[in-house]
Design a protein around this nucleic acid. Structure first.
Lengths: 232, 232
DNA sequence: CACTATCCTGACAATTTTTGTCAGTATGCT
DNA sequence: AGCATACTGACAAAAATTGTCAGGATAGTG
């Protein structure tokens, strides 16, 4: 089991690096010869790990997440499939595509026999009347949450008055058919929820923020008495 | 890579069997000695596969699904997390628990560094006003879809009239804040959608059904012109 | 262009891991 | 008690992995 283990660790070693890594560097790290590194990389690639090698440069791993073998029970796998299907129907094009890829990947990994079990378990028809159109892009918001990038929001409030605010995006909240973004509003110096369907325009500032005790997501959750039940 | 492969196949071999399988049987199947089987099983168990061995009986695998190592990109993993969170908030207690377990399992499989990326991406507050209470159990329906078990439904239609029908549950559909069950209604000999919040009682008949060309999910989808966009 | 840094491959012996054999113990079932 | 089976340790046999060496190929650079 030594080799299988090392393969996993090599991926980990490659993960999250900006610069290419040479075979020599890897050989050094794991105390193996370069020849073995080449063999390991070859095997990783054939099992689907997106490593790119370039002569004269080194190895780069596409930004990806390598999960070790895992066992799920039927419920967990059903959550995965159901969840991906919900996301596919209720977010935007980009995520919908990813959701489908995810479902396909997982389905393909199952045995023939098991695949049927998860046929048609869930199906989703987001009724157009319930789903208000967005002027903005869901994925942009998601990325901003992930990167902790401040956004400038052109927003129409409940009375339809347009405002422009700088916010720190903290989380996305799904309320029935409506998506909201929870953010720290720099104008009001407080937490605010913004409906995605009321956002007119989102401008990326490129400016990143750090969580402070006052502006962190956890603070908001605590203040709302949300401890575990709803928080992810 | 031969061993790692065989380990995976052994799990597959064990999967979906009612009777215990002896080491001898496995040894035979894979052309290896029993000693090796014992070693393989030991290693599988230490990597978390839920195999139970009993002296005098053989091996049994808890009903579970073993996924091989897989790579996901950031979007796919986000779909997984987001989806599980949605399921956790929008279904019932049982699935909610499974969703949390799923999220924990996947998080634990990620490296320290990556774990942070998926912190607080999404958070869900199912507003109680939008979520109508159910008299029945979501998980029961899910299981019936999976098993293809006919159900007897006490249902209140739009005018509030109570009816009792035998249906073949085909799929669960999430429409905004409302869940529906799509089924083939034996009373009307046609497809019908039933809102979960209008179901008064669900009786399990124990009777299983086979899809026929007339009653299959695919037929319904085709008739609705749903081809790919919404189907899972 | 030549040069460097690197990826990549084949062959084969050295090394390490896996496997089989054997001998024995432990445990659940009838 | 007797049987069927899981399980373990020791050690030699077999197989896989690894290192070494001797190349070839290719991207980037002066």
């Amino acid at each position: 089991m030594k080799r299988a283990d090392r393969l996993f660790q090599i991926v980990n070693f490659l993960q999250g690096r900006r610069m290419a890594v040479t075979a020599e560097r890897i050989a050094d790290e794991f105390d193996i010869s370069m020849r073995t590194v080449y063999r390991d990389i070859r095997d990783l690639i054939t099992t689907g790990v997106p490593i790119n090698g370039e002569a004269g440069v080194g190895y780069m791993l596409d930004k990806s997440y390598y999960l070790p073998p895992m066992t799920f029970d039927v419920e967990e796998l059903e959550v995965l499939m159901l969840g991906a299907a919900m996301v596919s129907s209720w977010t935007d094009k980009d995520m919908s595509v990813s959701a489908r890829t995810l479902i396909k990947k997982v389905r393909n990994a199952l045995s023939e026999r098991d695949r049927e079990t998860f046929e048609g378990i869930a199906l989703f028809a987001p009724p157009s009347r319930a789903r208000l159109p967005w002027a903005i892009n869901f994925s942009d918001l998601r990325k901003a949450v992930r990167k902790k990038e401040k956004l400038i929001l052109d927003y129409a409030d409940e009375q339809g008055r347009a405002t422009e605010r700088t916010i720190r995006p903290l989380s996305l909240v799904f309320m029935g058919p409506v998506w909201m973004m929870l953010g720290w509003c720099e104008l009001r110096s407080d937490f605010r929820n913004f409906r995605l369907d009321r956002m007119q325009k989102v401008t990326h500032t490129g400016e990143l923020f750090e969580d402070t005790p006052e502006t962190a997501l956890q603070t908001y959750l605590d203040s709302m008495g949300i401890c575990d039940g709803l928080k992810l």
